[in-house]
Nucleic acid binder design. Structure first.
Lengths: 211, 211
DNA sequence: AGCGGAAATGAATTGGCATTCAGGTATTAA
DNA sequence: TTAATACCTGAATGCCAATTCATTTCCGCT
């Protein structure tokens, strides 16, 4: 019999717990979620959680890593399929980022909210998966600069951070305001426009490459 | 004798407590700060805090509002002194935003970190002061569009959010990474460049207004 | 149908921490 | 000097969950 390694691998119970935690954390955030609430969501007993995770923190970190990994995989997969130059790939990245909010609202909510919360306090834990995510974006920018299609006079790390911040803040709004039935794809296009071409009105209309 | 209204006004003790809370929250965040730790920072007894604030939540909210108010005042004051068109004012806003990180690191840390934490969970409380802050930025964008110096084909609210997100994320980095002795003014200039002119390299060199 | 080990349970334990309050201390008025 | 008032104190209280663990259930095997 193949016993799925209780700690690392994917036993069905473990997955249930992670799924329950995702829902609970998305709804109320880490600090306002009771372990017993996660247990309820997952359909297991409180004690069961401690068979799979060291404690509540460990559960948060495991969940975060698992979800970031999923995200990174999705993103690099879809990005690999994009035809066109670096600017096109950058646009695609932005669109993919927002598509997430539509496809998996829980995940989007968990990531935007929890990343903010833990930004500082789980800082001992280096958050390598999030770093990987940023690296993807950073390498797009850097390649664009090397190929001469993106300006090289701006620091690529700074640009990466700023861009990530812009995407994340807009995503947060999407996620927290279920009221307005926004056209997500349109919003993504606008953000891409803004980032690529800037806000200023140019005097002559010889602006290149707008799509 | 003028007795300073214990609850609303500014008694010296109240100010001590707020200052202590600012330091404590900046260092460890709301959920990881003990009321007794705030009392220690402020040099008062635990119980004293409850003479001035209803509870820990109330303290957080009061502090947040007071600090946002300070920020808004500073910002609109300095912005009023800026000569030049809307683009210049937008640049100035960005520079002011970052100057904060240098002048009052505690405040910057508190705001970036706490705004994120409370993004969702203090949502019952509508956070009017933060809304005011966004309105300042929004009105800059809108005016620029009306005057025809900023593109009108992008939604001004979306642009505002994205811009705020970019600024905030970069500020967070400044605040959380005291290691690198970054030239803050230079970073501000670069972000302004990016936002105003965009990332793309233009074929002809007839790019206008770069400050 | 019964044994053994693994997995799961959830009530009981425990510790941490916000809040309270009975008793101080400073301040002013007479 | 005393009394009244306003302020402050910090140990004691009580609550609220995270975590534990004695017990039960499950399951594959013989």
């Amino acid at each position: 019999m193949v016993k799925p390694d209780k700690k690392r691998g994917d036993s069905p119970k473990r997955e249930l717990i992670l799924a329950g935690a995702l829902r609970a954390f998305a709804k109320n955030g880490f600090y306002n979620t009771r372990v017993s609430e996660i247990a309820r969501e997952a359909g297991v007993a409180d004690g069961t959680i401690y068979l799979y995770f060291k404690n509540k923190d460990d559960l948060l970190i495991s969940l975060f890593e698992e979800q970031m990994e999923y995200l990174i995989d999705r993103l690099s997969e879809e990005l690999a399929a994009v035809e066109g130059g670096l600017v096109e790939r950058l646009r695609a990245f932005i669109h993919l980022h927002f598509r997430l909010a539509v496809e998996r609202p829980d995940l989007a909510e968990f990531i935007t909210v929890e990343l903010r919360q833990s930004a500082k306090f789980v800082k001992e834990y280096e958050n390598p998966k999030f770093a990987d995510y940023l690296k993807m974006l950073h390498s797009l920018i850097e390649q664009g600069q090397q190929q001469g299609v993106l300006r090289s006079d701006l620091d690529s790390r700074l640009v990466t951070r700023a861009l990530f911040g812009a995407l994340d803040e807009v995503l947060l709004q999407l996620v927290l305001a279920p009221e307005a039935p926004t056209d997500v794809s349109d919003e993504a296009s606008q953000i891409a426009e803004m980032i690529v071409d800037g806000l200023i009105v140019r005097p002559r209309e010889d602006i290149s490459s707008t799509g």
